[in-house]
């Protein structure tokens, strides 16, 4: 590979944020699993002068539940997610997205934070996290701040992270029993493919009424987006086939897809319509089933 950069390998989070603080105007990037960044460097889409590798910072590789929150360290890999019973239980959509994520070797290195930080609207883990109302923890040498994932992206490959900040964790409230969470990835191939349209849905219900609706859409806008108008149509109502259809059409209306080599904008809208309908109906059925069981 033809490139030149300084490579630093901090041993701890403290060392890492200090290293980031010392950037001095040098184009510095953090390297986690490398499955996205290394590809960009090789293609010379980015030409960093300095890389800070997180390979040795094991404290960032963890999944834990503290009280009502589930927290995933930023260097947790996709394979870690697949092996986690906590994620399976409290983030079904995230687990589902890990099950359609790249190939084994990439899953073994690709990290949750890397999937967020790469900024791709087709990033597979992001719609599920968005549907779970996840927060992103950003840390620098002077402390940390928490940003809702919904506010994290500001545009195509643009975000609120400052150059001296590192994504250190992603966390969300453990969903209650009256909550269902689903994800589907539509791609041109079943294994190891870039998403054409990804949809994640979270529904909450009480007394037969949808109390909470999150519809997150991947690869149909410059950023992974929430279909807020569709969500508003669902929240506060008892879901019927007609309402789900209307809300799904609304989601298709809200998204802003483009034509590319994988699919046309028109098809992506259609996919959003179909997948939202299917996932909302499925999630609603999950809730119904949960109610019946309880």
């Amino acid at each position: 590979m033809f490139a030149e950069f300084d490579l630093e390998m901090p041993n701890s989070l403290d060392e890492a944020v200090l290293a980031l603080a010392r950037s001095d105007g040098i184009e510095t990037l953090t390297l986690a699993g490398g499955s996205s960044l290394m590809v960009d460097i090789r293609a010379r889409r980015v030409v960093p002068e300095r890389l800070i590798s997180l390979a040795r910072i094991n404290e960032l590789r963890r999944i834990e539940i503290l009280g009502p929150r589930i927290t995933i360290g930023s260097r947790t890999t996709v394979s870690d997610i697949l092996r986690s019973n906590q994620v399976a239980e409290h983030g079904a959509a995230l687990a589902a997205s890990a099950e359609v994520f790249a190939g084994q070797m990439v899953r073994n290195v690709a990290t949750v934070a890397g999937n967020i930080a790469c900024g791709s609207p087709a990033a597979d883990l992001v719609p599920p996290l968005l549907s779970l109302d996840a927060d992103v923890v950003l840390t620098n040498a002077s402390g940390f701040r928490t940003v809702p994932l919904a506010d994290y992206f500001t545009g195509f490959k643009q975000d609120v992270r400052r150059p001296d900040e590192l994504i250190t964790a992603i966390s969300w409230d453990v969903p209650g029993a009256k909550c269902a969470n689903r994800f589907y990835k539509l791609a041109r191939r079943k294994g190891d493919a870039i998403t054409v349209t990804g949809v994640a849905v979270t529904l909450g219900a009480a007394n037969g009424v949808c109390t909470k609706a999150r519809v997150a859409l991947g690869a149909v806008a410059p950023i992974v987006m929430r279909a807020r108008a569709a969500e508003a149509m669902l929240e506060g109502s008892t879901l019927t086939v007609e309402l789900i259809e209307e809300a799904s059409l609304k989601a298709a209306e809200e998204c802003q897809p483009i034509d590319d080599i994988r699919a046309s904008a028109d098809y992506r809208r259609h996919a959003v319509h179909m997948l939202t309908r299917r996932l909302v109906a499925g999630a609603w059925a999950d809730l119904h089933l949960a109610t019946e069981v309880s």
Partner: peptide
């Protein structure tokens, strides 16, 4: 670029694509 898997090796028992891995790490 991690598309084909021909360069896979085990690192401490876990398969990775060696093409996406900087040797220093």
């Amino acid at each position: 670029k991690g598309d084909c898997g021909a360069c896979a090796v085990l690192v401490d028992g876990e398969a990775i694509d060696s093409c996406l891995t900087l040797a220093w790490t």
